[in-house]
């Protein structure tokens, strides 16, 4: 269970989040949707205790992330990149992360197998492709077999097979009762994965609810998104 309550944030004198409020529930995949720069990553970073909000609270299972003991056993997070120092091998990275949360070394090889990186265990993270980095990041998130997953743009950089795999993985995770929160700017991808949708634009949540309710009278989630954010489809680029 994730509860974000009236979170506001100002960065370099610019307000980037305005009273962001929403929840993500166990057994459901919640999609956090918005164009680039809308405040998705900023919100997730606050949720994970990396950045501090000016006001508001972000709780995971009723507690702020920074107060979690052995947090990896509660939350698995995937942000930009793999989080592994480029000189480290995939296995060495996973092992120090495991050690920090009192998890056995054997977990490293187990999660490498889950994400299909067993053959790359001894490869240095700096030599990984974008897709492999994302997989390594996901492997790190899975180390503690957490009940909550927080994933920032998880399908970014994945090839079609990887996207298909990720979709199945996220659906399975929710089916097992996990809370899954993922951000994306790819509406098409998201519509096939999520149960609930939170739409953010220019730092404000413009709507949230079940996928069917948010899509409403629109033909697709994408149409609904552009109608809600008043962004010109096919804008100037």
């Amino acid at each position: 269970m994730i509860t974000i309550d009236r979170v506001s944030k100002t960065k370099s004198r610019t307000r980037i989040l305005y009273d962001v409020t929403f929840e993500a529930h166990p057994g459901r995949v919640t999609g956090f949707l918005g164009p680039n720069g809308a405040g998705k990553t900023s919100t997730l970073r606050i949720l994970l205790g990396l950045d501090s909000p000016q006001s508001g609270t972000a709780l995971i299972c009723g507690r702020p992330y920074r107060k979690l003991d052995r947090p990896l056993t509660t939350v698995g997070a995937l942000l930009d990149g793999s989080g592994a120092h480029r000189a480290r091998t995939a296995r060495a990275h996973l092992r120090w992360v495991a050690a920090s949360n009192g998890l056995p070394d054997s977990r490293a090889d187990e999660v490498l197998e889950v994400v299909g990186l067993t053959g790359e265990a001894r490869k240095r993270a700096g030599r990984f492709s974008l897709g492999m980095s994302r997989r390594l990041g996901l492997a790190t998130a899975l180390l503690g077999d957490p009940e909550v997953l927080v994933l920032d743009e998880p399908v970014n950089g994945l090839d079609p097979a990887g996207i298909r795999w990720m979709r199945g993985f996220l659906r399975d995770s929710a089916a097992q009762g996990r809370t899954v929160l993922l951000s994306s700017h790819l509406m098409g991808e998201l519509a096939e994965i999520v149960d609930d949708v939170v739409v953010i634009d220019k730092g404000r949540v413009v709507t949230h609810g079940r996928l069917a309710d948010v899509t409403g009278g629109h033909r697709t989630l994408e149409d609904a998104f552009f109608a809600l954010t008043a962004t010109e489809a096919g804008g100037p680029w």
Binding site: L48, G49, L50, P71, L72, V75, A77, L79, D80, G81, S82, G83, A84, H85, R86, H93, V97, S100, N101, A125, G126, F128, S129, L130, S133, T140, G157
Partner: peptide, 18 residues
């Protein structure tokens, strides 16, 4: 941590773990 994500650093993994 790499060319693909210039803003990404090990610190994120560190603070997520601790």
């Amino acid at each position: 941590t790499g060319r693909d994500a210039p803003g990404a650093r090990q610190l994120t993994a560190t603070l997520a773990a601790v």
